[in-house]
Design a protein around this nucleic acid. Structure first.
Length: 877
RNA sequence: GGGCGGGUAGCUCAGUUGGGAGAGCAUCGGCCUUACAAGCCGAGGGUCACAGGUUCAAGCCCUGUUCCGCCUACCA
């Protein structure tokens, strides 16, 4: 084995090996062992791996590998998402470089171009996931525009349509004038911007006065069809029913009353533009108002805008303001913060726009999805997200699913040019279902990308066929994803899964945090703070990267990735490597299969590490089962480095001779192997590399080795406690050495003074540990009747005093100072304890075991303090 | 406007039934001890945002204040 761990070559080699052996594959066999399944949140096919993916896939892979080692029939379905608008934008940009627009090509050619793009670049992110070690079943790789998935999409659309849950209607939608498409409410990002509130006057038609309205969007006045005031607003009572004149377009519009109007806001009179504002649209329906669309699909003013026709909407605003002012219509203009919606893809300002769109009536499905969580059929973790889920589900509005783009699932609806009716069908119809005319054409819109994603947990398993996959693996065990797509995706999968499969799509939902930069800022290209996971892996290896993400994945908290931290865990990987190297070297030629471990005479140190290992197994398993990733990582880090390496391996160096040799070799072998298996789900590569070198009979890969289980055979609680005393003593002696500046090489003499015979014999029997790890020479045991050794440093442990003889080793003054420091510290602690125990209420009301514990600690501190004081006095004389 | 999360060591963060405040990095001192200097041994450092309350006991539970972040919203 090489001196330093080199991840690059090793990671590549093992991934290929696992793949060749078919270890990622799961068969759909419901008779087999229990099953465990997951579907990947499909990354955009245009995507490149970012920190979010890295986090997401690491957490998934850990659970997949853990459960696979548990012996479950474990499936992880991978795939990619066609990502309608995003992908179309990418390909359009590509074409633009060649001076071509999609309109030059036409729809069919453009769609073919996107497929071509996908074939060329679409698997990049898949390769990156492999680089991370993701153990997906690649034989089952799916794409949301696959034949099978497209079939599922059509089936769902047609069913919902027939049930009346999908309908087509005029409505105000979020329109992106750049993408030329409607967007769902979720695809709009709101942001407060500095704007203005314009007050403008509309003269009354009968010349009896004027009404002043306030608006943040003066250009929409061109589409006004009413002015509304609150019922009973005395200021305007006399105007109700009258008409006012809209400047520039000279339209007469009524003044109406509606309870929605806020008396306090602005002038208490609001202009109503039913075709360009949702509120106004709804008010328009209530009052039967005309709807005048004043812009085209690019946000350019149309013929209804009269003299402003042909102007961009923002240019129109500027010109109109000038004209209003010039015409004496502008009363006031004040600074005002206004929330503006932006397209989540291209960031253009969203235009509320009246158009005909397809919608899903989601209320009934939302109710079932709420019930499923309330009844515990699906658990949402961390639990605080449940509330958010309910909140959204309860206030859900119909889902606009049509998009005016070309890349995506075409809506399976055909319009009849003869009778005007709509035919919705799974198979492309030849004639209109209503009048039989062959003169039909398909709706040009495609479906919202999330429509197909909503079906992902069952469409990837072959639905609508009744496949063995569905039987074996549905519902999936858990979905792991970022909280940012709880509504986009998780909620909709819940609705669709319950609707079409009759059961929830997953038992658990685990929502992880966002990965941010080290200062807590969201990573973005414009900020230039993006850390590329591929760079990280090039530098530190996939294992170090995965371990970092895991250690940071505390439930419900943002993750701040920092280079330093990754480096720290890179060192940890190297530490494991070196421990492996040490153990393998020491057990060379050792055949673990020839040893019956139940007949081995384990040393105290052996028993101690086996006991600690048992605990580590328990804690790690519990943490993983509870999605407490950071705890699992922390537990294993502490055990491997600070228990196994710092203590046991050091202790083992003096136990590889004589009768201790075989038990020590076995313990080294066993502890290393088990630790690697425990670590494998988090850091698959380095663990496999070392594990393969371990002697003895074992599985073809650590990937399919059984995950370690707690065993009664190592329930060495008493021995572990005894060893802990020795470790404590070694620590105390080392501390004295360190603090008083005794040379690390100087073998010192130590006197252990105690009347505790058991303790004395324990230390006598295990003298070697102290001699080697605390670098001592003579260790003398004396009873409490014997006088304290003069000119010595003192450390107090429970039931024993430890004296380090200083004669000729160092200056007494240093030790006096050291003791004084400890006396101060101990006195403080003791005071706190005394105060507590002096409180009668505490003694009366606290649990008995708590009081006893406090008394014990008090006594211990008291005795320690006394000893320290005596020792200090002695030295001062 | 509504909702959620957070404020713990210089930095990044743990701390799940309330009972002696932790880790990593950074800092300081000492070590090339034959697995590892990407390492080993030792040390220093915190009125757990602030103010109240509950309790024998609060980083943890309750109320209020404040600061930061996020989500959500049809206040023109």
């Amino acid at each position: 084995m090489k001196k330093e761990y080199d991840p690059g070559e090793i990671e590549q080699r093992w991934y290929a090996s696992w793949s060749e052996k078919g270890l990622f594959h799961a068969e759909a066999d419901s008779r087999a062992r229990g099953s465990y399944s997951m579907v990947i949140p499909p990354p955009n096919v245009t995507g490149v791996l970012h920190m979010g993916h890295a986090m997401n896939n690491t957490l998934q892979d850990i659970l997949i590998r853990f459960n696979r080692m548990e012996g479950l029939n474990t499936l992880w379905v991978p795939g990619t998402d066609h990502a309608g608008i995003a992908t179309q934008n990418v390909v359009e940009k590509d074409l633009a470089k060649r001076g071509i627009t999609r309109h030059d090509m036409g729809r069919d050619a453009f769609v073919e171009e996107v497929w071509k793009w996908r074939r060329l670049h679409g698997d990049k992110i898949i390769d990156q996931l492999k680089r991370m070690g993701s153990s997906c079943d690649w034989e089952r790789l799916r794409f949301t525009m696959d034949k099978g998935l497209s079939k599922a999409v059509r089936k769902v659309f047609v069913s919902l349509y027939e049930e009346g849950l999908i309908y087509r209607s005029d409505y105000i939608v979020n329109w992106c004038p750049r993408c030329h498409s409607a967007l769902s409410d979720l695809e709009v990002e709101h942001e407060d911007e500095d704007g203005f509130l314009w007050h403008m006057r509309y003269p009354l038609a009968d010349g009896s006065g004027e009404v002043v309205v306030a608006t943040t969007r003066p250009e929409t006045m061109l589409g006004d069809t009413a002015v509304a005031v609150h019922p009973g607003d005395e200021r305007y009572a006399s105007m109700i029913g009258k008409k006012c004149i809209l400047p520039f377009v000279d339209r007469q519009i009524p003044i109406i009353e509606d309870a929605v109007v806020d008396v306090e806001f602005g002038t208490g009179a609001v202009k109503i533009t039913p075709a360009h504002d949702l509120n106004d649209y709804e008010m328009g329906i209530r009052h039967g108002l005309e709807r005048i669309v004043i812009m085209d699909t690019s946000g350019v003013m149309n013929e209804n805008a009269g003299p402003y026709k042909g102007m961009d909407r923002f240019e129109c605003r500027r010109v109109l303001e000038h004209d209003l002012d010039a015409g004496g219509f502008l009363v006031d203009k004040t600074q005002y913060t206004v929330p503006v919606g932006h397209c989540y893809r291209c960031k253009s300002a969203i235009e509320p726009y009246l158009s005909k769109q397809w919608f899903v009536r989601v209320k009934p499905m939302a109710e079932d999805a709420i019930m499923a969580v309330k009844e515990g059929k699906t658990r949402i973790l961390p639990a605080q997200w449940e509330k958010t889920y309910f909140e959204w589900m309860n206030n859900i509005r119909d889902w606009c699913i049509s998009r005016q783009i070309w890349w995506g699932h075409r809506i399976p609806a055909w319009f009849c040019d003869e009778c005007g009716e709509i035919t919705v069908a799974q198979a492309d119809p030849k004639v209109c279902a209503h009048c039989g005319s062959a003169n039909i054409h398909q709706d040009s819109d495609v479906l919202d990308t999330w429509f197909s994603s909503a079906l992902w947990p069952f469409s990837t398993m072959g639905w609508p066929e009744n496949t063995p996959e569905l039987k074996t693996f549905y519902p999936t065990s858990v979905i792991i994803t970022g909280f940012d797509i709880l509504f986009f995706w998780v909620a909709r999968m819940m609705m669709m899964g319950i609707k079409f499969m009759g059961d929830v799509p997953f038992r658990d939902v685990y929502l992880h945090a966002l990965v941010r930069d080290e200062h807590g800022h969201k990573m973005s290209k414009s900020k230039g703070n993006v850390v590329d996971p591929m760079d990280v892996m090039d530098h530190y290896g996939a294992d170090a990267f995965r371990f970092t993400l895991t250690a940071f994945a505390a439930m419900g908290r943002d993750v701040r990735i920092s280079d330093k931290r990754i480096q720290g865990y890179r060192f940890f990987i190297n530490k494991i490597w070196n421990a492996g190297k040490y153990v393998l070297n020491k057990i060379e030629g050792f055949d673990p299969d020839s040893v019956d471990c139940s007949s081995l005479r384990f040393s105290l140190a052996d028993q101690w590490i086996l006991y600690r290992l048992n605990h580590t197994i328990h804690d790690t398993r519990e943490a993983l089962k509870g999605y407490r990733y950071n705890e699992a990582a922390e537990t294993l880090y502490q055990f491997t480095w600070h228990t196994l390496c710092d203590w046991y391996i050091e202790l083992s160096k003096n136990m590889l001779e004589g009768e201790e040799k075989i038990p020590t070799m076995w313990t080294l072998y066993y502890t290393l192997k088990t630790s690697l298996e425990l670590l494998h789900p988090i850091i698959p590569f380095v663990t496999e590399e070392i594990w393969q070198e371990i002697p003895g009979k074992k599985e073809a890969s650590i990937m399919v080795a059984p995950y370690p289980e707690v065993t009664d055979a190592f329930a060495f609680a008493d021995q572990a406690k005894a060893m802990a005393f020795i470790i404590e003593a070694i620590g105390k002696i080392r501390s004295i050495r360190g603090e008083t500046g005794i040379s690390p090489k100087a073998r010192i003499d130590v006197v252990l003074r105690s009347n505790d015979h058991k303790r004395q014999s324990l230390f006598k029997a295990n003298e070697t540990y102290i001699r080697e790890l605390a670098v001592t020479q003579n260790i003398t045991f004396i009873p409490m009747d014997d006088p304290r050794p003069p000119r010595s440093a003192l450390a107090v442990v429970s039931g024993m005093e430890i004296y380090v003889l200083l004669e000729g080793v160092l200056d007494i003054a240093t030790e006096i100072a050291r003791l004084d420091k400890q006396i101060t510290k101990t006195t403080k602690e003791l005071e706190k304890k005394k105060k507590k125990l002096a409180n009668q209420n505490f003694l009366d009301k606290a649990k008995e075991e708590v009081v006893d514990e406090q008394r014990r600690l008090n006594d211990e501190l008291e005795s320690k303090l006394g000893k320290l004081k005596t020792a200090a006095d002695l030295l001062k004389d």
